[in-house]
């Protein structure tokens, strides 16, 4: 069920894991900033961050042998990190709908 990491790849796998979260945050922040400013340059950079994230997820899948059922997890991470920030942005807009009147 679990095929552990090669012992010489422990550090690499850990760094990739950390990088996934960091790029995830980078993608989220840049996406939000691009929406805020309407800048397509920032939007481009946010996608670049996401591409780096996807590459790290791929690398992690290779190092941690995430095959078989674990591929579902890889797919969910790729989808989740992509969609969640966009969803939260729309949610922010919607929840704050009519906010200015109440201020």
């Amino acid at each position: 069920m679990v095929d552990p990491v090669d012992i010489h790849r422990i550090a690499g796998a850990a760094l990739l894991g950390g990088a996934i979260i960091l790029f995830g945050a980078g993608y989220a922040i840049l996406h939000a900033l691009s929406r805020l400013s309407g800048s397509s340059v920032l939007a481009g950079f946010s996608l670049l961050c996401y591409a780096a994230l996807a590459a790290c997820v791929g690398g992690l899948a290779v190092l941690l042998h995430l095959w078989g059922l674990w591929l579902v997890l890889v797919a969910l991470m790729l989808a989740g990190y992509f969609i969640a920030p966009r969803f939260i942005w729309r949610l922010s807009e919607q929840v704050h709908e009519g906010d200015s009147k109440e201020d």
């Binding site: 729309r90 919607q94 929840v95 709908e97 009519g98 009147k101 109440e102």
Partner: peptide, 13 residues
């Protein structure tokens, strides 16, 4: 309270 004004969509309520 603010259903009558332009409140958020149902999925953001």
């Amino acid at each position: 309270q603010d259903e009558d004004t332009s409140g958020p969509e149902w999925w953001a309520s």
